[in-house]
């Protein structure tokens, strides 16, 4: 228990040390939101789709979760390139568990910085779009959403065991998330064939569907989010274990 607390706290403090970067996170987040708001206001104005503000609030929430999901690919690659991964593998706990706790702390700190800004925008410009139930679900569903997002990142990160560098796989990951996560384009507005395709993949359950449930909080929606999240986390983690088992066997440390 102590280990869990200290690992999360360590991640939290790592982020909080970078006070100069808070402004960067705010600006990056604000820019992403401004782009989706202006673009989708135009799209919804001229489209036959549902013209309510809920789609824009959905995109703000999806952008928020995208912003706080840790990009552990860079962390993983850094550990591999520096050779520090050897130390981490010698820890008395699983390396992945330590990484989860550390990044959880980091993401919680990021959430603390970004959450007030995003919620401020929602409450000022789109009043009445979120209920108290939405707020509760936002907090309750966050842990599982975070774990799935982490597992997706972990799976992509395992490729660095073979490539040592990260740029290529991160480009692929970003491209996949752009279309399949629902963070840039509401899943409900996708063409029907694409919507079906997205619903059988894990990415939207870590981003877009989470935002969708917060906008329309029903028991059915919650279960349609949480059950796939649990199933996909197990499947993706299993894939990660398989890949990393091979990866760690052939991996040669750079000496650190």
């Amino acid at each position: 228990m102590k280990f869990i607390f200290y690992s999360v706290r360590n991640g939290f403090r790592t982020f909080m040390c970078q006070k100069n970067n808070f402004m960067i996170y705010w600006i990056n987040n604000l820019f992403s939101i401004l782009l989706v708001v202006f673009l989708w206001q135009q799209i919804l104005k001229y489209s036959s789709a549902n013209q309510s503000n809920s789609q824009i609030v959905y995109l703000i929430l999806a952008q928020m979760i995208l912003a706080i999901t840790p990009e552990i690919i860079y962390r993983y690659s850094q550990l591999i390139q520096s050779g520090d991964i050897a130390y981490k593998l010698l820890l008395p706990v699983k390396f992945e568990f330590w990484l989860l706790l550390d990044t959880l702390g980091y993401s919680l700190a990021k959430l603390l910085i970004i959450f007030p800004l995003d919620m401020g925008i929602v409450f000022i410009f789109f009043p009445g779009s979120l209920s108290i139930m939405s707020g509760l679900l936002l907090l309750l569903l966050f842990p599982m959403t975070f774990v799935l997002g982490f597992t997706i990142e972990l799976l992509f990160s395992s490729v660095t065991l073979f490539t040592y560098s990260v740029w290529g796989i991160n480009t692929i990951k970003s491209a996949v998330l752009m279309v399949l996560s629902g963070a840039y384009f509401p899943v409900s507005l996708l063409p029907s064939a694409m919507k079906k395709f997205v619903s059988v993949l894990p990415f939207s359950y870590a981003y877009g569907q989470y935002a969708e449930v917060i906008i329309t909080p029903t028991v059915a929606n919650v279960s349609l989010l949480v059950i796939p999240q649990i199933i996909w986390t197990i499947i993706l983690y299993w894939f990660y274990v398989m890949i990393s088992r091979v990866g760690f066997k052939q991996f040669v440390t750079q000496g650190g």
């Binding site: 490539t163 040592y164 290529g168 796989i169 480009t171 491209a175 752009m178």
Partner: peptide, 20 residues
């Protein structure tokens, strides 16, 4: 290896951008 992955990634990224 990462260089080739990067090229594949960018092709995918560009195609998906157009798809969006």
């Amino acid at each position: 290896k990462d260089f080739y992955l990067g090229i594949v990634g960018l092709i995918i990224e560009n195609i998906l951008n157009l798809l969006m």
